[in-house]
């Protein structure tokens, strides 16, 4: 090791880069399965909602028989849901145990509880006589809105601005789609949703560094042990 004035900064720069690379790589490895999951959901939305958009009596461009459109949509959702469940089960085997496991488990259950709860909610509304033209707007909106809210919570839990932004985008997509109304909302879900998810997946893959709270530059050696991070794009 050298603390020679000439050599030290170059050495320090190399070590700093090594540290940053390892930070990104660690984050990327830890969330790789979620990056895949987002891609699967992007594909499921892209194909599923496009099928609905082309469904006779459903979307704006009647090409496919309604039954075919619904079957394609349902198949896409089932594949994505099964993939989600498998991802959830596998996340329990990341080799990490301890305090953060409960946090992850509770958050995982939030998804299941919200999605199953939403399904019961829609069944209840249907029993109460929900009109078909409202139902077509409400069903996708409710689920995607919940996804958005869960991303907000996840972003807050793991201090991930990117995840938080994805949540905001999801909620914005729902509002835009619902205001535009049927059948155009299917086209919005088929395009904007997947684009947002692909961007999110790419960011996870690259390795998002959690946002750090800015700390003032230390004034004395006594503060040296305090965490001090520099703002970096996540």
């Amino acid at each position: 090791m050298s603390t020679d004035d000439e050599k030290a900064p170059a050495d320090a720069a190399l070590m700093f880069d090594l540290m940053q690379t390892q930070r990104r790589r660690t984050q990327s490895r830890l969330v790789r399965r979620y990056a895949w999951l987002l891609l699967v959901w992007a594909a499921a939305w892209g194909v599923g909602f496009t099928a609905l958009w082309f469904g006779r009596d459903i979307g704006g461009v009647p090409v496919l028989p309604a039954i075919v459109a619904w079957i394609v949509f349902a198949a896409c959702m089932v594949i994505a849901i099964v993939w989600s469940i498998v991802t959830g089960i596998r996340s329990g085997n990341s080799g990490i145990r301890g305090r953060s496991v409960l946090q992850g488990t509770l958050y995982g259950w939030s998804w299941t509880i919200s999605m199953v709860g939403a399904w019961f909610l829609t069944v209840g509304l249907q029993r109460a006589g929900l009109a078909a033209d409202v139902a077509t707007l409400l069903y996708p909106a409710l689920y995607i809105f919940l996804v958005g809210v869960l991303y907000l919570a996840g972003g807050a839990l793991w201090r991930s601005i990117a995840q938080y932004v994805l949540g905001v985008v999801m909620i914005a997509v729902v509002i835009v789609a619902t205001f535009i109304g049927a059948p155009w909302h299917f086209l919005v879900y088929a395009t904007l949703g997947p684009v947002a998810m692909i961007v999110g997946s790419f960011l996870l893959w690259r390795g998002i560094l959690p946002a750090e709270s800015p700390e003032p530059r230390r004034a004395s050696a006594a503060d040296a042990a305090e965490p001090r991070e520099h703002g970096e794009p996540s």
Partner: peptide
Amino acid sequence: LRIMTALTEALDDGDEITFPALQKLL
């Protein structure tokens, strides 16, 4: 440095990671 970085990044206080999982991260 890489080991310390990975451990800091992957583990919260009170967490532990298995040797093979750490090996995979690194």
